[in-house]
Nucleic acid binder design. Structure first.
Ligand SMILES: [Mn+2]
Ligand SMILES: [Mn+2]
Ligand SMILES: [Zn+2]
Ligand SMILES: [Zn+2]
Lengths: 142, 142
DNA sequence: TTAGATATTGAAACTGGTTTTCAATATCTT
DNA sequence: AAGATATTGAAAACCAGTTTCAATATCTAA
C-alpha cells in the first residue's frame, strides 16, 4: 500500500489530523537521501517551505517512525537519523568512523543465529541493532 | 596484569597523574554491578566519598574506557553505561524493554559472519554493537 | 626537601539535540 | 457555519554530557 495512505490511516487510527505540513514533510522525507537527521530535512524543506518549523519536522519524523514508515537510527554521533523503511525488509549498517560513509548489509544467517541465541534465553526479540564501526574501503589505506 | 596497574601505566604514558579520586573511582567501578551509568557510580561513591564530584566520576570513566579497562555502552535510553572489560573477551547484549534486564551473549558464528560481510565490502571493522531489544523470559508472558 | 611547573578537582556554567509549552491557527464533526 | 479538538512555530525548557576556572594536588628537578 502507498506510504501516503499508510500514514493517513495511522493518523486517523490515533485520532490525529491530516495537515499540509505533515504531507509536505512526508514527501520530502521519502525523496530524501537515506539516514537524514531532523536538521538535514529541516534545512532541505526550508528552501521551498520557509514557514515550517524545526519542531514540526521532528515531531513528524517521530510520527513516521511510530507508524512504521521511518526507521530511527543512532550511529553514535549524538543525533538521530531517519530512513524510509524498505519493502524488502530489514538491513543493518557499517559506519566509517573517518568519512561517515554508511554501507548497508543484510545477512540472513546472522538474523537466524541471533534468533536462536534469543530463544536459548527465552527472550522475545522485538527489534535489534547491529552496527559495524571502522574504515571504509576508501579510508582504510589512509 | 592487574587492572590497577594497567590504569596507572596508561596515565603515565599519557603524562597524566595518579590521584586519590582516580584510584577510588577505579576500585568502585571494578566492584560495581555491570552496566552502571555515571550517575549510578556517582551516587554509590557519594556515601563514602561525599567530596568527589560528578564531573570527576565521568571524566575518570572516560579515561577507563580509553585505557581499555571499561567498555562504554549505549542502550537507547540516552545515557552512557560502563562495564568492566572482561578477560574472556567480547560479548553482546539483549535488553528487556519492559524491566530493563540486560542479558549478555556471545556467539562466535555471528562474529565470524560479520567479519566476512565486512570483507566483502572491503570494510575494516574496529568495533561493533549488536543489541537485541525485546522482552525477557519474565516479561514475555505479561 | 623544596620550589616551580603542570595536572586535577569540584561547582557551576554551558552545549546541542531533543522535547515541551503556549497562544494563534487549522482541521474535523455536526 | 460553529464548536470541539488537534496542530503549529517560536521560544523556553530539558538533560546527559562537557567545559571553565580558581583552588589544590602531584610530579620533577634542583
Ligand atoms: Mn539504512
Ligand atoms: Mn555486558
Ligand atoms: Zn570512509
Ligand atoms: Zn524484562
Amino acid at each position: 500500500m502507498d506510504r501516503v495512505r499508510i500514514f493517513s490511516d495511522y493518523l486517523e487510527r490515533k485520532g490525529l489530523k491530516t495537515t499540509n505540513q505533515r504531507n509536505v514533510i512526508l514527501k520530502a522525507f521519502l525523496n530524501s537521501r537515506s539516514h537524514c537527521s531532523t536538521e538535514d530535512l529541516y534545512l532541505k524543506l526550508r528552501k521551498k517551505h520557509p514557514r515550517i518549523g524545526y519542531a514540526t519536522v521532528h515531531r513528524t519524523l517521530k510520527l513516521l517512525a511510530e507508524s512504521g514508515i521511518a526507521i530511527e537510527q543512532h550511529f553514535g554521533d549524538g543525533q538521530a537519523r531517519f530512513e524510509p523503511a524498505r519493502a524488502d525488509g530489514h538491513h543493518d549498517h557499517m559506519v566509517c568512523i573517518k568519512c561517515g560513509l554508511i554501507i548497508e548489509f543484510e545477512e540472513p544467517q546472522i538474523e537466524e543465529l541471533q534468533k536462536q541465541v534469543a530463544e536459548v534465553h527465552h527472550f522475545k526479540i522485538s527489534n535489534h541493532r547491529h552496527e559495524l564501526y571502522g574504515f571504509c574501503f576508501r579510508c582504510a589505506d589512509k
